[in-house]
């Protein structure tokens, strides 16, 4: 343990550790480089998936998410996470239970059965917002950590929905045309590019990817067209589920619709890892469905 000043219980979720493990490895290493230690949150589960569980029974969603928060409470730590879907579940349920006694009592009745109690002592953060927060890391410190600037790379930012929206239940300000993630990208020496309808959904959420894949992909396709229109070397996001939708989605889009884009999809932590000097192997970029090679050629 490096003993950094800022320490968080690291909530992994499902898709990062089980499909894109490079994101997990990158998150731990890159955070350490900018002064954040991510400690294992032992026994955490699926957040659980807000679309699937929220649609079936919101009470189960509350209870399951609360269990994950309680694990961090028991460590006396705040949670940091790397997925917008997880953020929706863990941040929002934590927030709701802190402010709604009736909900909290209902959840605690269930948690009692497994000797747990939600106390409301932990806060939940997305790593990306910790990176942006000058009190924790800040854009300058991020830039200082860069060993290999991503100079010349034009990168589209996909914020994803569940991090920022609904805006009134979050704290990110403008949800229509935010620019803070562009600042994070620029800090790495890359050029963030604006494209049409940048805040549009990736299409995967709400169970739609499983329910009607073509429908979900058609939304993804619209975003890819808008990115291609302005010419990008890669798209970055902070949500492994969005990543899956853009990355594997491009293969599925080719199969179903015939369109081909070849736009590499990189989680911000993967991008940060590259900029801090991690090798593509250390990030398992070969697991990506869309080859990251053209992007690597541009920056290496």
């Amino acid at each position: 343990m490096s003993g950094n000043k800022h320490q968080y219980a690291f909530f992994l979720g499902c898709i990062a550790p089980n499909r894109y493990p490079g994101i997990e490895a990158a998150a731990i290493q890159t955070s350490k480089n900018v002064g954040i230690d991510l400690l294992p949150l032992k026994g955490a589960s699926c957040c659980p998936a807000p679309g699937a569980f929220g649609s079936i029974d919101l009470n189960v969603w509350y209870a399951m998410a609360a269990r994950n928060v309680v694990l961090a409470e028991q460590m006396k730590m705040d949670i940091a996470l790397i997925c917008n879907g997880c953020y929706k579940s863990i941040y929002e349920v934590n927030h709701k239970l802190k402010h709604n006694d009736e909900l909290r009592d209902g959840v605690n009745e269930v948690l009692k059965e497994i000797d747990m109690e939600f106390k409301g002592t932990a806060d939940v953060w997305h790593l990306a917002e910790l990176y942006y927060d000058p009190k924790i890391v800040g854009v300058k410190k991020l830039a200082d950590s860069v060993k290999r600037p991503l100079a010349g790379a034009k990168i589209a930012v996909h914020y994803g929905c569940h991090l920022m929206k609904p805006g009134k239940e979050r704290h990110f300000g403008d949800t229509e045309n935010p620019m803070w993630m562009e600042e994070l990208v620029a800090a790495l020496g890359a050029e963030p590019v604006q494209y049409r309808n940048k805040m549009q959904c990736c299409g995967a959420g709400g169970g739609v990817r499983g329910y009607d894949l073509a429908h979900a992909l058609d939304i993804t396709n619209e975003k890819l067209i808008n990115m291609q229109e302005v010419g990008v070397d890669a798209v970055t996001e902070v949500c492994p589920f969005c990543q899956l939708q853009f990355d594997r989605g491009q293969i599925e889009i080719k199969e179903k619709f015939g369109a081909e884009y070849g736009i590499p999809v990189l989680h911000y932590n993967e991008l940060l890892g590259l900029a801090q000097g991690m090798s593509p192997d250390e990030l398992a970029l070969d697991l990506h469905a869309i080859s990251v090679e053209p992007f690597l050629k541009k920056i290496l």
Partner: peptide
Amino acid sequence: RLGLEAEPETTHKYPEYLPGIRRILDHYRL
């Protein structure tokens, strides 16, 4: 390959947490 453990620090590595999760799901007969 990445130097991570084969199973992440979740219920995958600690299956002893699974009964608690099942208890919650069973509570709602889900």
